[in-house]
Amino acid sequence: MISVLRRMFRGFLSIFRSKKDIKLGLYGPPNGGKTTLANAICKDILGDDFEQGIVSRIAHETRSVEVRDKMELDVEGRTISFNLVDTPGIATKIDYEDFLKVGMQEKQAKKRAKEATKGVIESIKWLDDMDSVVVVLDATRDPYSQVNITILGNLAARDIPVLIAANKVDLKRANIKRIKAAFPQYPVVGISAKYGNNLDIMYKELVNLVGK
């Protein structure tokens, strides 16, 4: 009942919302490559000097929501305008000792862990504001994690269109078939955000997604 009301309210709001206010979110677990993808999209649209955020091998590098306004993407004569929202990775546990293992000082590790917890909360709060979402998954990892399922379940409950970007296909261990098998109800595009592989295919899917 609540979800039906929510859908009606979203539909009602969309009548008044300008096409340029569309929020395209990048969601997923930590270290899936959300910020790398945000940077790649920004470079493709705005040029080489534009990057969304800092990337790192250490999890929880992005600890607050970053928004890049007024992006326009042209694909085969179709243009979409959106605000790109890069979110911190969603996790169910954060242990500062994990950051110590990668060489951080204790004070720095504790600070990072605290900021990361706030980032997860912020990401979840922003779910309600999204119009379309690209869920960025690391294709070398097991897709059946509860975080992935919870993110997708929440997007479905909010009736938000979803595209899954199976990232890191440049790595040998990447397995897109496993992601497609885990989430057959969603379109899945295998990409390498780092090297720009298949981003053109993803952009075509994005036009369809945001245009919904």
Binding site: A91, T92, K93, A113, V120, I121, Q146, T150, G153, N154
Partner: peptide, 28 residues
């Protein structure tokens, strides 16, 4: 739990993380 409750559980977990409680593992 409902999907929204799962997300709220993660939020509540994050709010309570400290030196003794590092979070949860969850599976459905």
């Amino acid at each position: 739990l409902k999907a929204e409750e799962e997300a709220e559980l993660i939020q509540a977990t994050m709010e309570e993380i400290n030196k003794d409680f590092k979070g949860i593992e969850l599976a459905v």
